[in-house]
Structure formats: structure tokens, C-alpha cells
Amino acid sequence: MSEQLHRTISLDELGWPEDGLEVAPASAGLDLPWSSAGALQAAEVVNESGEMMHRRMFITLLGSALTSPAHEWLIAQSPQDIASTTGRPLSGKVVDHLDAVTASLRRMDDHLGSGQTLGLVRQHLSTVVGVLRGRSYSDSIGRRLHATAGELLRLAGWLSFDGGHHIQAQRFWIAGLYQANAAGDRGLGANILGFMSCQAKDLGQLRQAVTLAETARASYPATSPRVATILDLRAAEAYANNRSVTDTRRALDNAFGRFTDSRPEHGDPDWSYWINEAQAHAQAGYCFVKLGDWPRARDHLRTALRLQGNEYTREGALRNALLATTYVQQEQPELDKALALGDQAVQTLTGQVTSARCIKHVRNLVGSLAPYQRTSAVRRFFQDAKDLIAM
């Protein structure tokens, strides 16, 4: 509030007591060694319900609090041997089963959204952490387990972010970076930084968003075209929010160029499955919306919707809301087209998928339609969307 209003907001103005209130960064309790033991402790710390979130603590999420964990991960040395001799031996087949559940949870999120999936992800994470803590395994299996935990923490952070819980998301992602380091998995860590960049731009931390996106790109050896595409698109989004047209277009050109080289022999990780042609066009459309280039935005978003088919997903709702916005904001608004797309977004978000992030875009659409509220069709849309955007 102090940053937005350009003046200091005191605790007294908010009706909060001055005494005993702790102020800490989102990384509080996560200043741990970059070792397998530190990674395991980080996962346990963030997955404990309500830890560090009691009512007497206010956790900040600004400036260097967003980027310092990225720098620490970038320079940290991956541990040389993370084998464990505790408990009964663990076979690779068990890790295969754990990864299969993780893959299922990722795809469940696509259709149900954050509200109905996060609890399941946290339960599965507890299982993986328990295996890491209580079983014996070789170095290679240990790294696979840490990679699984890291992907679950990445997914938990994404679900928290999608639900509007930014501090919780940040803590999951920081813990995920510890797992990526223990696993020696640069792609996983870079992907987490990409999501942190996405969060930073949503929080209005545009400089930090660019820093995180470029750190992700610089840290990844580009062995998987799909992963490299994801990182280029994150950079494009960061630059678009920063109104840097040249950098946005360059990043988008890189992304689409890499995507055409997604041959199976590259060994793309399973978590990169979501980046397909439809998603690449959707993210490009988002970038051009941010740049105010309505024709280019519309071309990409139309392509994304055509390629996705008739699925009622969170991303489909987002694409409809963004495309509707282009019809409102263009020089000669086409309200009928905008309202038809807005109706589809509201329908999906009301009865199919839970996503605070997508609801925010519907709320933005409602705001852009405000000058036309004397029109009966616009008033009807406002009424239909009222309960949704009040969430």
C-alpha cells in the first residue's frame, strides 16, 4: 500500500497493534544450506500447513525478496552424492509410480484449476518427502526423488499463484529451487524461475520479472527445445509488461523458432507437455494485448482457440477473456463479439474451473466495458459476471 500510494502507511492506520508484529521476507525460514538435507528441510518447512503464516507476522514480497533466491540457486553447487542408507532400499519402479501420480495431478489442474487440486498436490508431496526421509536409495534414485519433489513444489506454487496466494506460491518455489539443485536439474530450476517471473509481473514488479526471466534463460543449457520455448515465452511476457516492443518480439521469434525443433530425441521433460502450439500462440496473444497491438493479439488468440478445440479449460477461459478485450479496446469496438467471448469465459470459470488469475482478466474485461454500460447487453453481462468477479 505504501508503494502504490507513494507515502508511508503506518500500522496504526490499518488498525494493527504496533507491538509484537514481526515483518519478514517470503523466504523466512528458508535460509538453508544448498545440500540434499537443506532441500529436504525446505520441502518440509513449506508444506506444513500455516507455518510462518500466523496472525502476528506480515510477510513482504517485493524487490530483492523476489530475485535473491534466484541468484543463490544460480551460484549454488549441486551436492556430489545424495545417496541415503536409512531404512529399506527403494527401487526405481517406485519413483516411476510417484512420477505417474505427479503427471496425473498436472493434468488434473488443467481441467479443475487451483482450488480443487492443491490439497492433493500437498498430500503427494508429503509422500515423496517421507520416502526421501525414510528410505535408502542410490545417488541416481535420490536425484530423481528430489526432482519429483521439486516439480510438486513448482506445481503447488503455481496452484497457489493461480489462486491469488502469492506469498505461499513464493515459498513453494523457493523450496523447489532447493530440490532442483539437489537433483542437479537445471531445466527444473529454470522453469521455476520462469514461474517466479510470471508472478513478479502480476505483482507489478516489472524489473524483477525481467531479471528472473533472463536468469532462467541464461541458466539453462537449452538441451530441450520445449523448455527453451517456455523460457523465451516467459521473457516475452516480462518484456511486454515492461512495454519493451523490440525485446518482446525478439523473445517471441526465439520461442516460435525453437518450438519447430521439438523432435522426440531431445528428451523433453514430462512437465513441459503443456507447451504446445495453442499455448505458444496464447502467450504471444497476451504479449500483444499488453503492448496494445490489438490486430496481432487477435490473430494469435484466435489461433490458440482454434487449436484448443472445444475443451473447457482454465486456459480457454483466459484466451476468451483476452480476445474479448481486444474487441473492446480496438478503435471501433465490436461489443457483440466481445460479449459472446466474455460469456464463454464466465461460463467456464463459474461451472468448470477455479482460477483467481483468470477471474482477474474477466474483471479487467468488465472494466474495459464500463463506458458502454448504458447498452442493455453490456448491463446483462455485468449482471452475469457479478458473482464471479466479486470472488
Rank of each mutant, 00 (worst) to 15 (best):
Tyr239Lys: 12
Ala76Glu: 08
Val129Ala: 10
Ala156Cys: 01
Ser140Pro: 10
Phe58Lys: 14
Leu335Arg: 13
Asp268Arg: 01
Ala236Glu: 08
Asp387Gly: 07
Gly134Trp: 04
Arg234Met: 06
Arg250Trp: 09
Arg122Met: 03
Arg56Pro: 13
Leu305Asp: 01
Gly157Asp: 09
Ala321Ile: 04
Ser224Glu: 09
Gly142Pro: 13
Arg243Phe: 08
Ala240Thr: 01
Ile167Phe: 10
Ser10Asp: 03
Gly87Tyr: 05
Thr246Leu: 13
Asn241Ser: 06
Ala228Ser: 14
Gly38Ala: 04
Ala338Gln: 05
Ile230Asp: 15
Leu155Ser: 03
Thr215Asp: 14
His165Glu: 14
Glu334Ser: 12
Leu335Lys: 11
His146Val: 00
Pro25Phe: 03
Asp31Lys: 14
Gly309Val: 00
Leu90Cys: 00
Gly187Leu: 02
Trp34Phe: 01
Ala100Lys: 15
Arg298Gly: 00
Gly38Phe: 06
Ala213His: 09
Gly157Ile: 02
Pro79Tyr: 03
Ala169Gly: 08
Arg319Gly: 05
Leu155Asn: 07
Thr313Phe: 02
Arg186Phe: 05
Leu335Tyr: 10
Ala235Pro: 03
Ile230Thr: 13
Lys360Gln: 08
Gln205Glu: 14
Asn254Tyr: 11
Gln208Phe: 10
Glu13Gly: 04
Arg107Tyr: 12
Thr354Lys: 15
Ala147Phe: 09
Val121Tyr: 06
Leu61Ile: 04
Ala76Thr: 01
Ala282Leu: 05
Ser140Ala: 06
Arg135Asn: 15
Arg249Glu: 12
His146Gln: 11
Val328Asn: 12
Leu159Tyr: 01
Leu291Val: 02
Trp271Glu: 13
Arg234Lys: 08
Leu14Lys: 03
Gln4Trp: 12
Asp261Cys: 09
Gly92Val: 02
Leu369Thr: 08
Phe381Ile: 00
Pro269Asn: 00
Leu335Phe: 03
Asp202Asn: 13
Leu120Phe: 03
Val46Phe: 05
Val131Gly: 07
Cys287Pro: 03
Thr8Leu: 08
Gly292Gln: 03
Glu237Ala: 09
Ala28Gly: 11
Gly257Glu: 10
Ala65Val: 09
Leu145Ala: 11
Ala103Gly: 14
Thr60Ile: 02
Arg374Thr: 14
Gln347Phe: 10
Ala169Phe: 05
Pro79Glu: 04
Arg298Ala: 00
Ser2Trp: 12
Ala304Ser: 04
Gly292Phe: 00
Phe58Ala: 12
His361Val: 09
Ala251Glu: 06
Ala65Asn: 14
Arg258Val: 01
Arg107Met: 13
Arg374Ala: 11
Arg363Glu: 13
His6Asp: 14
Glu331Leu: 06
Val245Gln: 15
Ile59Arg: 15
Thr60Lys: 12
Ala278Asp: 11
Ser104Ile: 00
Trp34Thr: 01
Gly316Phe: 00
Thr86Asp: 06
Met1Gln: 08
Ala26Leu: 12
Gly130Thr: 03
Arg7Lys: 04
